[in-house]
Write a protein that binds this DNA or RNA. Structure first.
Lengths: 348, 348
DNA sequence: GGGGGCTTCGAAAACGGTTTCGTGTTACTA
DNA sequence: TAGTAACACGAAACCGTTTTCGAAGCCCCC
């Protein structure tokens, strides 16, 4: 049985041999260099088109020391916000002719380090990353510094640190939380609870601060018993009925939409009316916020825009390769967040 | 101001020059080749470790004609099922020392083609992809054939075609829909509606078939007016109250969880009790299914497993590079789906 | 002392491009 | 007629590896 042979990729060498010219001539002809005669140029280009020649990316990368690849490292991929950011990155990068290599750190320090080391050895021109939870806890960023010291530009987003020389793009979590809390207060709520994460990521900590400031600046005392710290994948019991029954509160700010939706479910089961008895506001304006019942008022983090901005900053740095001083001019961009008002809050 | 110079990446050449040996000696010493004397080996290795030498991936790729990169092309990244599959791919690939390059086709044929062409020119060793909606509509797969004919292995998942020589991994959508429908019927429902997509993807079509077969084999006639075809991002009006009020049905099978959750919201608003008056079953067991109220009985597609299997099949093909006959032995793996029973259905 | 074998290393080609520089040919000019 | 400039092209270096093959040096043995 005559197996169909694989069409091997054709190279400059093949074309050169076939047309009886040198490799350099082919290369230049394909770039329309005026070093090459008009007729030769046309002959080469025609033949190249005929056999569908495409230059080998790897060879070009090796020669140019540029891959046109961007490395993206995120803590989790099954996660609405991160995928949204990723979409923004991917779209902008694609427009500019870059591909995106993604690695998932799984919230682990070692995976973050390994992935960065792998990619840093020539595979990418720059990094966009959100720190893993473990990295934030350890406060250890030497793997990132190692990369920047090699001259590889880095953009941090959302989960950032300022202990590294790089660009940053994030939302003002404290302010977003403050605004959301004040929104609740303005609508007449007086006892606002907070559902936050057990292990304090930077992000949650800032949201808590914003929450506290809003209370303070409205003359309300922050009641510690109204702050509930939940594990990431909590059992139904963690958020127990007793929390609702032993405390009185009329609104809840949640640091993510899952906490909010689960809170609303339980509240409704216990007979509370939303938003009249208890209002809810969450962070991360994802599918859950949109389709929960009642739908959830939520802080939109505009991940797509964030990703696009991150990609833009990174690519600018990459392409400013030779302007050392410009390359060291680091910026921090704050993406304005906005509150998407839905059914889980009463009109202010 | 003395700017800190970038530490340039060191290469074999640097080490060779520094230690006054040849490049080949360094290369071999680092691989512990017994061609090199014990003392030289140790000297080289020590020095390499000292200056933290890491080989350049690009150069190795060029030499070996293997990148250890896998190209993944999916229609959308902000999508629970696809990210789940992606996680499976990424985990397995990482274990095997591969990186993953993702491109998003955005459900468009041209982006799918462009992305594949870009990556096929040396950037990757193989593809894993789910066809874009447009590609499925056009039934045009020459871009994929072109790739396979070059000897680049391809694994199709979920949105597949059998017009291309490649491996496939998918769930039995027809059977899953049939089982789900029968589950509704066994629980006493007699008039089962179907919420499906307007533009019939392969996947939706198969689910519809399964739905029809279940009805038929239970002696129930499929009522065309109980099949509602919705646009992807439909307005609230498309799924109008009139659909509920002008037809009588006691259960709904939905081809995705969004349709299901939105259906449930409307039904509840109209005073129907779920699951007693109307039961719901959806596809894609994501966050919405878990956290909707009532929570949604849903067909789990086990995306992570699907991704892992796809990656396994692909990497096997990649690494069987020289066994031509084995490489052409294409398989189709069906991942069993399962029904996750929750509150939106009554016990059978 | 010459042949054979082993150890240890280096030169060079190769991967597939880009780019610098040199060279041969032609034609124009003084 | 000789000098020179423009034109068209090729040789070769280079990017950073791997790998083949040859060679030098040494020891041993007959």
């Amino acid at each position: 049985m005559p197996r169909q042979a694989v069409k091997k990729k054709i190279t400059l060498k093949h074309i050169a041999r076939e047309l009886d010219v040198s490799i350099s001539t082919v290369s230049k002809a394909l770039k329309n260099s005026d070093e090459i005669g008009q007729d030769t140029r046309e002959k080469v280009q025609a033949f190249a088109r005929l056999c569908n020649y495409k230059p080998n990316n790897i060879a070009i990368s090796l020669k140019n020391k540029r891959t046109r690849n961007i490395g993206v490292i995120i803590p989790d991929i099954v996660h609405h916000f991160f995928t949204t950011v990723f979409r923004g990155i991917e779209q902008y990068a694609n427009e500019k002719g870059y591909n995106v290599i993604v690695c998932v750190s799984d919230e682990r320090f070692d995976k973050e380090v390994i992935n960065m080391e792998m990619l840093a050895n020539g595979s990418i021109d720059g990094f966009i990353l959100a720190l893993s939870a473990e990295t934030q806890k350890r406060n250890d960023f030497k793997h990132i510094r190692e990369v920047t010291e090699q001259g590889i530009p880095v953009v941090l987003f959302d989960r950032v640190t300022d202990e590294v020389d790089c660009d940053r793009v994030l939302i003002d979590d404290e302010r977003a939380a403050r605004d959301a809390t004040e929104r609740l207060i303005r609508s007449g709520k007086r006892r606002v609870a907070l559902f936050t994460t057990e292990s304090p990521l930077n992000v949650s900590a800032k949201r808590e601060q914003g929450y506290r400031k809003a209370l303070a600046s409205n003359g309300l005392a922050a009641a510690e018993e109204l702050i509930l710290r939940l594990p990431h994948q909590f059992e139904e019991e963690s958020l127990s009925e007793s929390f609702f029954q032993n405390r009185s509160f009329d609104a809840v700010l949640c640091v993510n939409e899952i906490f909010a939706v689960r809170g609303m479910r339980l509240a409704q089961r216990l007979g509370y009316r939303i938003p009249d008895d208890i209002s809810f506001i969450g962070f991360t304006d994802g599918l859950l916020s949109r389709y929960a019942s009642p739908s959830l008022t939520s802080v939109a983090q505009h991940g797509e825009q964030m990703g696009a901005v991150a990609a833009e900053m990174l690519i600018e740095k990459i392409e400013k390769e030779y302007d050392e001083t410009d390359r060291r001019n680091y910026r921090t961009v704050v993406i304005p967040s906005s509150l998407i008002e839905r059914e889980s809050t009463v009109l202010g």
